[in-house]
């Protein structure tokens, strides 16, 4: 029973982190039609910016997290405006562009900070203990911030004009443009929103786990897996799938071990693609 409860706590915590990553990834695909291979790179960059602010500039951690969000969002904006925008309808070109950006980012971090993991610690430590079951305080803080950020994103997308405009572009770009919406302003905004979310996750999670130039690869893999499960481009699907992935990963690893746990996730996605190729909440055809 203890194991069952512990796995549940871990699963929810993992799910919230995966949700933040997957929402950004699927936002870019849903609105721009771009598969962003640099998404893990922005997660890593968020971690390094927060670390540099805390360690090199002596900035308090919460301010460092905001700086990481601002930096990754600004870089995402510039990248979309200068490079992605020119080739936004060429899927192969944008795939190579984002992959190239990721390689530049990871090599830059390797050169600047070196190959070793940084001494980057979350300011709150300890755990709430209920007998043998525990909930790390740092994970609870991150869970709270993640849920707030997800709620904030939902409000932006569904309760503001800019959100309506972004969803309109995602639904049918031609019609949206005929209505006066301007992709050249809105696409960089969407990209910045997504990369800012990745940066936020990196700034929050890397001090709990570890921060080195290699942390980005698994993040990209998990984000991809989650959005495929949820349905590429579907925000609700990504959030739902993130919690499913987190909970399946936790329970399967606890009860079947780390190797089989990873396998079960991939089998789950494989079965879903066979029986429901559009994912949990995906649509058959995207408009953009």
């Amino acid at each position: 029973m203890e194991q069952f409860l512990q796995a549940g706590i871990i699963g929810i915590s993992l799910g919230a982190q995966y949700a933040l990553l997957a929402l950004g990834f699927t936002l870019i695909f849903g609105i721009l039609g771009v598969v962003n291979f640099s998404h893990g790179g922005f997660y890593m960059l968020g971690g390094y910016v927060a670390y540099a602010c805390v360690d090199r500039l002596g900035v308090p951690y919460p301010v460092a997290v905001l700086a990481a969000v601002g930096t990754t969002a600004a870089l995402g904006w510039v990248f979309e405006l200068l490079l992605i925008e020119r080739l936004v309808d060429d899927h192969l070109a944008t795939l190579m562009l984002t992959l190239g950006l990721y390689l530049v980012m990871s090599t830059a971090m390797l050169e600047v900070f070196g190959p070793l993991a940084m001494d980057f610690r979350f300011p709150i430590t300890g755990a709430l203990r209920f007998g043998p079951v525990y909930a790390p305080l740092e994970n609870l803080v991150v869970l709270g911030i993640c849920l707030t950020a997800i709620m904030g994103l939902w409000l932006v997308l569904f309760r503001t004009d800019i959100g309506r405009a972004l969803r309109a572009l995602a639904d049918d770009r031609a019609v949206a443009m005929a209505q006066g919406l301007r992709p050249k302003l809105l696409f960089p905004a969407a990209f910045a929103l997504a990369t800012g979310l990745a940066g936020l996750t990196g700034a929050l999670v890397t001090p709990i786990l570890s921060l080195s130039p290699g942390v980005a690869d698994p993040v990209l893999a998990t984000s991809f897996l989650t959005v495929i499960l949820g349905g590429l481009g579907s925000l609700g699907g990504a959030a739902l799938a993130a919690f499913i992935v987190g909970i399946v990963e936790a329970y399967s690893s606890v009860y079947f071990g780390g190797s089989i746990g990873a396998l079960i996730l991939f089998v789950l996605v494989l079965l879903l693609l066979v029986f429901r190729p559009t994912g949990l909440l995906g649509r058959e055809v995207r408009g953009a």
């Binding site: 194991q3 512990q6 796995a7 871990i10 915590s13 993992l14 786990l209 570890s210 942390v215 690869d217 698994p218 993040v219 893999a221 990963e249 936790a250 329970y251 690893s253 606890v254 009860y255 071990g257 780390g258 190797s259 746990g261 990873a262």
Partner: peptide, 20 residues
């Protein structure tokens, strides 16, 4: 012996299994 997939970043589930 407990094995994990290379690329695992969060070991909390495996730690729970080991400590059982």
């Amino acid at each position: 012996e407990e094995y994990y997939q290379r690329g695992t970043t969060n070991f909390a589930p495996i730690v729970t299994r080991i400590l059982a």
